[in-house]
Each structure stands twice: as C-alpha cells, then as structure tokens.
C-alpha cells in the first residue's frame, strides 16, 4: 500500500545542510588537512610522503623528543594546577554565592567573573607589571605587611615560572566554574533542600551530602572543559613569557612548542609539516582525554531527575 511507504524526508537534509556544510568547511576539512600535512616532508621544495616519519622524528630524535616531553610535562602540570586550584575554589565561591545570607552577591559575582572576559594580552601584561621586581606592586604590598623577603622574581625563575603562570590562568578563569556550579546549585529544587532540612541535615553537611552529589555532572563538564582548554593553551604564556617560553623553556607547553615549530621564531624557520605533527599529537592527547572522560566517568555518573 502506498500509504505505508514513508515519503523521503527532504526537509531533514535541507535543515541539516547549513550546519553540516559550515562545520565541514571550517572544522573537518582543516582537521584532516592538518593530519595529512603531518605525513609529508619538504625536500628540495617538493612535498614528499614520509608516512609516520615525522612522528618517529618527534619521538625518536633527541632534539625534538626532549622538547616535546618537556612541553607535555609542563602542560600536564599546568593542567594539574588549574584542576586542583581553580575548580575547588570555583565550587566554594559558587556555594558561598548561592547562600541566602550573603549580601552583595551580585557585585561579587560580577567582580569575580570580569577577568574571564578580559583579553589574554591585558591579563598577561597586567600580571607581568604587578609581579615586576622593578615597578610591580607585589614587592611593595609584601613590604607593607613585612614580608618583603618572600618576594622573588617568580616569572623569571625556572622553578616557579610555570606555577605562577598557571595561577594567573586560575585567576583569570575562576569565573567559569563558579558560574556553571552556581547555575547548577540554583537549579536544585527547594523541595529537596526542604526535605533535607526536615531530616536535620543543614549547613556544611547539607552541602556535602545533598548539593555536591547533585552538581557532580556539572563538575565533570568543568573538568573536561579545563582539560581541553589547558591542553590547547597558548595565549597567556605567549604574552607573558614570549614564544621561547622562558626561562629555559620552563613554561613551554604544547601550544607554544607548536607555534615555534609551525611558524618559526627569530632565526628558526617555520616547519609546517613538523608543526602539523605536533598538532596531530595534541589532537590525539585531547581526544584520548575526552574519551576517557566520556566512557569512563560520565556514564557512571548517577543523574537525578526531579
């Protein structure tokens, strides 16, 4: 019977087309072009296919692998600091903001969120000035509380530079977890809270036992956003420490390593093929990280329906 045959649903394709075309043109094609670029090497002006040769060079040639592992390790530390400092403080701030007893909550919320919308260039420049041993206010502030000897040229010391930069990044982005968690906390229905209060769970234990489990999915999302953001990071370090990510490459992360390799720096000439190789490895790292989260963690999170 003709009625049973479903008509071809042209409209589905028509409605999908704009997004698919735009996404393909500006995301998928460049992504595969990058993967493709990493399989070639320029010899005498001609691109020659070398298979995984560039990857062998990146991991096998000590000149490359030394820099790569250094950048990866620094990147991991950058991520660890961000995870360990930014997210707990963000959750704490959100919990404080959502408290009914807090006055001027809107003012605090705005003030804490503002750095997030500032440009990296401004953040890097301002913090460089604040921490400058010559004209910064950090040494004077410490002096006024009698702790001048605590001050060190943090951005210039290979042991402290990366952590300092990571903390600047935390300062800048603390608003994001705060806002997300704040929204999640507000969406918890009053009935649940009231029920808890009837059972005598109030104050801190209410936060730990009732609210925290309910906002866990949001924390998961924030973690994955932090992970992706940190492993793609570049701007702040480039602005504050330059493309050589000094001192002594101690703040060199995958993004700055990629930039130097791809575009070149000072007398070092750019090498798009090796650059694409590093970009591919970065892509793989982020892909693996996201998959681990999606399949390993998110599926096991319990969700509550209200």
């Amino acid at each position: 019977m003709a009625q049973d045959r479903k008509p071809v649903r042209w409209h589905v394709g028509v409605f999908l087309a704009p997004a698919v075309i735009v996404y393909t043109a500006i995301m998928i094609v460049p992504l595969f072009a990058t993967l493709d670029l990493s399989l070639y090497e320029v010899r005498d002006k001609v691109a020659a296919f070398v298979g995984l040769g560039n990857f062998a060079k990146l991991f096998g040639d000590p000149n490359w692998s030394g820099q790569f592992w250094n950048a990866l390790w620094n990147n991991t530390w950058f991520f660890v600091v961000n995870m360990a400092v930014q997210n707990p403080i963000g959750i704490g701030l959100a919990a404080l903001l959502s408290s009914n007893r807090l006055r001027f909550a809107a003012a605090y919320r705005t003030a804490i969120f503002v750095p997030t919308i500032l440009s990296f260039v401004i953040v890097g420049f301002v913090w460089k000035l604040i921490l400058s041993p010559l004209w910064g206010i950090a040494p004077d502030l410490l002096k006024s509380v009698g702790l001048r000897h605590w001050f060190a040229p943090w951005l210039g010391d290979p042991h402290t530079a990366l952590t300092t930069i990571a903390l600047i990044s935390v300062w800048q982005f603390i608003g994001i977890p705060m806002m997300l968690i704040y929204a999640a906390l507000l969406s918890i229905p009053e009935e649940v809270i009231e029920a808890a209060e009837m059972d005598g769970i109030t104050g801190m234990s209410q936060f730990w036992r009732i609210k925290l489990p309910l906002i866990l999915p949001s924390i998961g999302i924030i973690s994955i956003l932090t992970f992706v953001g940190n492993f793609n990071a570049f701007d702040l370090i480039y602005v504050a420490q330059g493309a050589l990510a000094g001192p002594d490459f101690s703040t060199d992360i995958l993004g700055t390593f990629l930039y130097r390799t791809f575009f070149g720096f000072q007398l070092q000439l750019g090498d798009p093929n090796m650059g694409a190789t590093i970009a591919t490895v970065m892509f793989a790292i982020i892909l693996v990280g996201v998959c681990v989260y999606l399949f390993g963690i998110q599926r096991r999170l319990r969700r509550y329906q209200f």
């Binding site: 210039g156 290979p158 001192p247 002594d248 000072q266 070092q268």
Partner: peptide, 23 residues
C-alpha cells in the same frame, strides 16, 4: 643557524641560563 636545534635560539637560552645560574 640553519639546522635544528637552531643555534641562535639555543644561544639565547644558554646565555640566560648561565646568568640565571641554572647552568
């Protein structure tokens, strides 16, 4: 400075390291 590692960039790092006393 034609090859990898680039001598000019390496000299920057080396000179700064020596002055920072990390090398």
């Amino acid at each position: 400075s034609r090859g990898t590692p680039n001598l000019e960039n390496a000299l920057w790092a080396a000179s700064a390291n020596v002055m920072n006393k990390t090398e």
